[in-house]
Design a protein around this nucleic acid. Structure first.
Lengths: 149, 149
DNA sequence: ACTATATAGTTCTACGTAGAACCAAAGGAG
DNA sequence: CTCCTTTGGTTCTACGTAGAACTATATAGT
């Protein structure tokens, strides 16, 4: 038996499983977000709250693991909805800085409540246990992939 | 401390980690696929080889966890490239059946070799170990999400 | 048999995302 | 100071995907 082939199937199957979980959880997430706000857009708001706002788009893009093109587009949407405010960086003529508005903050608060409620219906103690069990391994895997891309 | 909020952050963080791994692995995968073939399209070919062809599109769609609209589009692309052959189902006037062509089979073979080579550069023994460790938990999580959507 | 409902696929439209080319400002080398 | 390279963002284009509305066939209930 070909060892390389065996590993390939194993790797394949693993990433397929990851992909499906991502797919299903994103769908579940999207359903619980009000008003057609996309999960990735919410994630940006969430990131700004947790890590602090006033950051340049490129930094946010790398944190969210998307390209800068995508970030330009997402920020335009969030700005249009009035959730963020984008200003030129006073210290860098090329740069911009992204700030949360009050509307953005309270939208995120409300969404968190809603999402929690929906998640509680689906995610039980067994699932939480799984998450705790494999969290470290996942983190390590993510770091490895991130460093070697 | 609010227990529900705690769980929400935990769940959030977990799915974020899953999302990033999916993102990075898909990108890695895409890079190693020749000729602009999308990972999801390759997955369809792979599925047809592993599970056998001659299946209706809807069945493939549910196996791949995409909507039937998406499957219609993907099959059109694969057919246009000559990798599959779609015929009407003789037992169901509404249905179609999807068959692999020889071109499709050999394309998949070649791609597997190429992908294996790229993956070997990035995925080491440590990563394989992680995959083996958490594989069962992931599968259980996937099944749970699939059943409760 | 007849009608109502369910199912298989398609089409139209909208949207998130990435790649490539591009512009503008910053930073470094001489 | 000048030129070259790097970096932050935008624009244009292409593509995978989903939602909704639609057609056609099949199935169930009476």
């Amino acid at each position: 038996m070909n060892e390389g082939q065996g590993n390939t199937d194993e790797v394949f199957g693993f990433f397929t499983e990851i992909g499906i979980i991502n797919q299903l959880s994103t769908a579940l997430f999207a359903k619980s977000l009000p008003d057609g706000v996309h999960p990735s857009h919410f994630s940006i708001l969430n990131h700004l709250v947790l890590r602090g706002d006033g950051k340049p788009p490129l930094r946010i893009a790398s944190a969210m693991q998307v390209t800068k093109n995508t970030m330009t587009h997402s920020l335009k949407v969030l700005q249009h909805k009035g959730y963020i405010d984008v200003q030129p960086d006073p210290n860098d003529g090329r740069g911009k800085l992204v700030f949360l508005t009050e509307t953005g903050r309270s939208f995120r608060e409300d969404a968190i409540v809603r999402v929690s409620a929906i998640f509680k219906e689906t995610i039980g103690e067994d699932q939480i246990a799984i998450m705790r069990r494999i969290r470290n391994d996942l983190e390590q895997m993510r770091k490895h992939l991130d460093d070697n891309r």
